[in-house]
């Protein structure tokens, strides 16, 4: 955007295997969100190649991009980004609507995923009637509902207090345990320590990329 081009990412080369849980760290302006947007096909890199599950992502038209986002990717945002006039259940079912599923199937699947994040009882509440942690869990359910290949989370705990953050991270860990590939953008060390691999970005380049010992969250009640 804008006439003066700014190179945010300057040569990123990394691979994520299936089932990995990676956190991308960096101070603001390091390019971590841009990287995530490119991985999420919300943005496109000026040069270079990106292959998602063997499919080259290059020069997609909007229709195809929408299809890939729908089928391959699940997004969790810092500010939850739920549709405020839809109930939790309808929010979770939204990707399925665009996938073209019948209403009945949508509702069944959405309820299943809401149950999975522990909010089956809240299915008919509007986002304004939910706490921040609950909203984020609805968002996680929405991201998972199409059974995507990758879950992309952009500062998923950025708007939550630490107790709630841990609850959400616990949920994300349990999803990873089931084999889902997860990428988390964060600038909080305690959050990144809960992943299995930390990629550090600075000024658009990877300064280090290490596997770490995952910190498991104790069961909270």
């Amino acid at each position: 955007m804008g006439s003066n081009s700014l190179h945010v990412l300057k040569g990123i080369n990394f691979n994520v295997e299936e089932g990995e849980m990676v956190s991308i760290m960096g101070s603001s302006g390091s390019g971590k969100s841009t990287l995530l947007n490119i991985l999420g096909i919300l943005d496109e890199a000026d040069s270079g190649s990106y292959t998602l599950d063997g499919v080259p992502i290059k020069n997609l038209n909007e229709k195809l991009a929408a299809k890939y986002r729908n089928e391959f990717l699940g997004f969790v945002f810092q500010s939850f980004n739920l549709v405020n006039y839809k109930s939790a259940l309808d929010n979770v079912a939204l990707p399925l609507y665009y996938k073209g599923l019948k209403r009945r199937e949508r509702m069944d699947l959405a309820l299943h995923y809401l149950d999975k994040v522990g909010l089956a009882d809240w299915s008919h509440h509007l986002p304004s009637e939910l706490s921040g942690g609950q909203k984020q869990r609805v968002a996680v359910a929405r991201a998972l509902v199409t059974d995507p290949k990758v879950l992309l989370a952009d500062e998923p705990t950025g708007a939550l207090d630490s107790t709630t953050s841990y609850e959400v991270m616990e949920l994300i860990q349990s999803i990873n345990d089931e084999g889902k590939t997860i990428l988390i953008v964060t600038h909080e060390t305690d959050i990144s320590n809960m992943t299995k691999r930390i990629v550090n970005l600075k000024d658009g380049v990877i300064i280090d990329d290490n596997s770490v010992e995952q910190v498991r969250i104790k069961q909270h009640v």
Partner: peptide, 10 residues
Amino acid sequence: GVRRAVGATP
């Protein structure tokens, strides 16, 4: 934007 992120076509 959210709708498009979850797969709505233009």
